[in-house]
Design a protein around this nucleic acid. Sequence first.
DNA 1: GATTATAAGCGTAAACTTAACGTTTATTTT
DNA 2: AAAATAAACGTTAAGTTTACGCTTATAATC
Lengths: 223, 223
Amino acid sequence: MWVSIDSLVFGYDTVENNLKILLFQRKVEPFAGEWSLIGGLVNENENLSDAAERVLEKFTGLTNVFLEQLTAYGKADRDPGGRVVSVLYWSLVKLDDLHRDIANSHGASWFGLDELPDLVLDHGEMVRLGVSKLVENAKTHPIGFELLPEEFTLPQLKQLYDAIYGKSIDDRNFRKKILSTNLLIKTDKKDKSTSKKGAFVYRFNTEKYEELNEQGYHLDLSV
Amino acid sequence: MWVSIDSLVFGYDTVENNLKILLFQRKVEPFAGEWSLIGGLVNENENLSDAAERVLEKFTGLTNVFLEQLTAYGKADRDPGGRVVSVLYWSLVKLDDLHRDIANSHGASWFGLDELPDLVLDHGEMVRLGVSKLVENAKTHPIGFELLPEEFTLPQLKQLYDAIYGKSIDDRNFRKKILSTNLLIKTDKKDKSTSKKGAFVYRFNTEKYEELNEQGYHLDLSV
DNA sequence: GATTATAAGCGTAAACTTAACGTTTATTTT
DNA sequence: AAAATAAACGTTAAGTTTACGCTTATAATC
């Protein structure tokens, strides 16, 4: 029996303001030319999570990014090429031009969630699961900060959450909620790229979050 | 590479008022005589979920009970007997004398969460994960009703949630919250086994819950 | 140099929810 | 008839959420 991993990689396009996922055009049969999630077989002496990291690095050049297991897919007939149990991972990355180039050089590219091609095997199902998990997790985990650059503005953060939740949050309430966590560090820099007034630049206080988390703190960003 | 499933089976002891899990004393080497979760290898032509159902039926005689996948364990060296990726399931059952007997006849028995023996391999880790998942899920999914008989009283239900959350919920607030969902069906029966006055018997409206759920309803039983 | 346009940032009040605790009811036992 | 007790019901203050109005800082334009 073979074991593989597949990874659903989310990136946020700050220019287009939408969420994208990384897809890969298969080079070998079966299903050569069709689109699939990135993935590969797990080596005999390789930890599952290491396989996921290896595949992610191959397609994005990234290490040390958000990468977690979602679930295993194990229907006996899911892959006509043989019996393969696949463990699905999901990853959140900061999308930029470099990653686009690395992806492209491996036959992979980024697709907006509303322009996805048909996917091979049960990968469409995996995407649906991952998207619902993203929305769910956005409410209780600081995943927004994995998708944005280290430094970001509040309007940017709000737009990201708009994209995740698929609706426009009230900006005054969003601001209050996110600031009331005391988990953002305000810098004295202003980003004037989107307005005359300029928006203050913030960073997420990862250390504080992790400390609080160990003490049983639960983030709540639901709206 | 081998693929196995392990199942963390929770039962609620209505007499002792505590949560228990089903453990199995291994009969074969390696680790003969040591305690483990119930589990087994997945057959070449068997769906993962079917393997989980098969193992659960073997040890409890039960079919058609709550059984969901949690996560896969895939460290290369997790099992000294060979390379085995194990997919963990969790299950919730209505514990009664029949199940105790079936379990016992297979070398399995029920243990309170505070009296667990050391477990084989990474099964201790699995239990910790499953317990936290149970607590988490109790807030947003109607799992309490999987653990109680079809017919139950509100004081019984409150005691179960006390056991899951590990604290005593205010009974007046619990009552209001659970009744405000309109998901309980009050019968005209009274259970007088615990008081002179007797407590009304309720049933959970599964059909209504599932219908609401499809429309995007989210249960909230957090306290 | 004054005016305008605009995104960013701040404030408030009504509606709703939660948390904490007091009271009444139905029944059996004495 | 009175006492004991688990079950059931009720109230109020504090906190949270939602919906919306107002002010501010700056660049572009008149």
